[in-house]
Design a protein around this nucleic acid. Sequence first.
DNA 1: TATTGTTATACTCTATAACTATA
DNA 2: TATAGTTATAGAGTATAACAATA
Lengths: 157, 157
Amino acid sequence: MNNPSQEAPDLVDFGPLAGTVSYGIKRAYLRVIRDLEGALAPSGFTPPLLAALAIVAANPGISPARLAAAMGHGRSRAAPLLDHLEGQGLLTRRAGPDRRSIRLHLTATGRAALRRLKSIVAEHEVRITAGLTTQEAGGLPDMLERVAEGKGAVTLR
Amino acid sequence: MNNPSQEAPDLVDFGPLAGTVSYGIKRAYLRVIRDLEGALAPSGFTPPLLAALAIVAANPGISPARLAAAMGHGRSRAAPLLDHLEGQGLLTRRAGPDRRSIRLHLTATGRAALRRLKSIVAEHEVRITAGLTTQEAGGLPDMLERVAEGKGAVTLR
DNA sequence: TATTGTTATACTCTATAACTATA
DNA sequence: TATAGTTATAGAGTATAACAATA
């Protein structure tokens, strides 16, 4: 596991971290998030803004709290994201049947923006899977989901 | 891709993000980093501190700049990490042959700490791969490395 | 003039708790 | 008393640029 010489090596050895799923995911995440940030920058979007837009699009009427949970954080994280998206006219906050709850819906502008973003995401996906075979790229998302969830389906609360 | 009703769904649909490697990695990363942070907390370590310690251990004499690059960031990120580890007596900064460069080495204390941390990491690895078959867990790191690097080996610079 | 390590700064992300309004 | 949304705050992580020392 070690470099026998005392010289700084040309290839860095990750030692006990090498070959772990844990560190592999961390390194892959760095590549993915940077590539996506760069690809989205010209459009003024960030990865979290895109995720929020896409999740509201696929789940019309979803509440801010459920949106935040789907994205993996607490309620309070939704507000600034929604302020931004609503300010750009991409979605609306409508009162629910219960007057303290809110239902989110995309506007026509939001749907159009999402259509354009989809092609950026598709190109990004091609770039990050360039080193994988078609089979590997096809099987990876399901494996990652099982890492993310422990196992089982994507249930929320 | 959409939920046909206007009701908030029990299962959240990730829409165009569902089934992508990109979003899968992001979700898996969240699980991994949180599990590892929790597992390391009692020892006073964080994931970046552990990574720095492990990389110096496996690459005696490595410079701060190369350490930072191996971890995926710029030079300036190394200093606070090294201050902390040196302050705890886990590593030393020795002058290199070139008087402006520095070579990093673990102390005996640092090596002992790393030995203890390894079992925490091993347990963490078991937890996050619990939803995978042995075959899948065995093949994942290499696939993740190819995502992280675009392809090819772990070269620096 | 270029390089190494460090410092300073600002910006983002995130978590926690507190606040409001409803129920 | 509990819940939904929001706001406020502080902390951690990160990137950029600027700096000092050396080459």
